[in-house]
Design a protein around this nucleic acid. Structure first.
Lengths: 195, 195, 195, 195
DNA sequence: GGCTAACCGAGACGGTACGTCCTGTCTTGAG
DNA sequence: CTCAAGACAGGACGTACCGTCTCGGTTAGCC
């Protein structure tokens, strides 16, 4: 019964992903087209459409191959240090043109593409956020963090600051900035505990 | 010398802005086209190109007419309360479809359009951020906030949390959520001052 | 020397020809595609390409199986009657959708495909025309037809009328019409022999 | 109310028709594509689609500009002579590559395109055939042709012979051949009036 | 009865053209 | 001098087939 058929060519797949990344790096996400990727990769348009439903899917595939391992959470015994380390690495990753440019493009496109938004959510939230929540939970357990801490909101504030710079204020990101964010949010704004 | 000429029709201008807003509300920012706006407004494409350089400019023009007054900063004597009030209003504004949808579309497009990014920056940062900084400055002066507070980073964290929900995690926004963000960031994460 | 291998499957062959004929009948020759035939026949495209060089070859193969015996020339002793009979059968055959539709399609395609044109020519001219010429020759011998008759031109006129209706004027064909053509051409146009 | 709009460019129109004719002459009707015409004419595809519904319509437009005057019927006082003259001119026209090749392509395509078939019919039948019928009518009136002549069938036979050579047997056409057809059909096949 | 080559289905591949949509520019005529 | 109308060159879209190319799986026919 079952179907055999010629297996998908890994050469073609790699050529497409490489071409997509190069084109984003060189001309920006907005200028990316399926036709352009096909031409650059020396591949037929149909080959792309057979494997990916949109240019966003191609870029996601290309971008999220290598980034995974770099974003895991450490366990140093200090929640503040764990956050400093991981968020620094996130900020650094975002400044690398090979990642930052396509990633911002994907975030932009995901605003009108629910499927893409879901895929990014899966990758960003389900995977990363669970790690962050775990770090905070350990901190609370150790008595390092407030017992009544609202974990979700804390994560929003910490990562929100990074994404705010990336997407809204477009100010430069750096590992140093990431560390400052962690420290400021860690300590809070108020002058004395009784306020 | 010669004749007076016909002045730009304000009727046409208003028709364009109204059509643009309706189309964004009905079909989303991504589906917006200059041709569509022109057709809906009963106006020639030329008329739009004569007054705005891009569809983003039309939408900005349409969206930022009314929002100004709603986002000013109060001065209640408490920085925490001032922030709660203003950030709540921001969160509420973002949930209104007549503002939130086009605004998110503009933020998305601004990722590839530096001119639009500048225009949004002008509006979002220069104007709003100065108000937030003033609130924090007053809080420090009053001894309500830490003297060594990094104002910029604090603002990134507070507003970042809101934008993070809007653009990245796509979780629902509300005035209540905004207030929680202010309170959590105000107090900080740590359990005791000596950490 | 070497091994035997598996012979071509006659089941596949018949499935292809049947599928092609059905598709032409149902959707017309123009809508016929190799992919469509393969799908309908439950056969791989490769199987078709292995046996036929083009969709025209498939259709020719399918159409010219059964038509042969119906188009032979009788020998009644009267050239006029022989022609009436055979041309009537031709006209009738052309009106049958199972033959007429694919045949017209082949004639159309043969206008740009010399190989197909040759194949059709082989079938139509070499085979049929020889029979018609023989009928006319017998008629001349018997003194029934003019001794100085231009056989080729006579055949062109007789069959031309049929093909003209089929391909150019698209008026309906019938056995009755065929008989009228034979009679009119037989007698000629002129009122009296001395013109 | 009324629309003004930019008028269609006659330059573009002429460029398209000229390009189409050249391409048919050089590479044949089958190889003709809208994209090819657009490229050759230095025109956008949309410009072609705006004015013509298909490549056939372009070719018809291109081919039928000049042919009209050449195909009118003379009135010499002799039906045989009138037919000889006009059918000779038809045969000659068909041999000119600038007309014959595109015309055969159109006839081929009209077999699957009813709209095109109608348009050709309009041009070929309604216009030309009326002229032929008139010639025959005059011949009958003068006593030159049989009173009981079936005009339609006679026309089918005369022109059918020409089209048969053009489309089916692909034998060469010439003015001489056309004249022979007229003469043979005029006299008929039979040896003596009493058959 | 086991080998083995040819044939089969499936379907991915590099291509070409399709007809559509939208872009931003231009050219009219009416007001 | 501005407007609605709409034609223009251009570029990308996603689709349909083309004819070629691997793939396993399946049959014959010969040892």
């Amino acid at each position: 019964m079952g179907a055999a058929g010629r297996p998908k060519s890994d050469k073609a797949r790699r050529a497409v992903l490489a071409a997509a990344l190069e084109l984003v790096k060189d001309h920006g996400y907005a200028a990316l087209t399926i036709e352009g990727i096909a031409a650059r990769a020396g591949v037929a348009k149909t080959t792309i459409y057979r494997s990916w439903p949109s240019k966003a899917a191609v870029v996601m595939d290309a971008v999220f191959v290598e980034s995974d391992p770099r974003l895991s959470f450490p366990d140093t015994g200090s929640a503040r240090e764990d956050l400093r380390l991981q968020i620094s690495r996130v900020a650094t990753l975002f400044t690398e043109p090979g990642f930052g440019k396509p990633f911002v493009g994907l975030l932009a496109e995901s605003q009108h593409d629910p499927a893409l938004a879901d895929a990014l959510h899966q990758w960003l939230i389900t995977a990363r956020r669970a790690g962050a929540a775990e770090v905070l939970r350990r901190g609370v357990e150790r008595g390092e963090l407030r017992a009544d801490l609202d974990t979700d909101v804390a994560i929003d504030a910490l990562y929100g600051a990074i994404y705010y710079r990336l997407l809204v204020s477009h100010q430069p990101l750096s590992a140093q900035y990431a560390r400052t964010v962690v420290d400021e949010v860690f300590v809070g704004l108020r002058a004395r505990e009784d306020i």
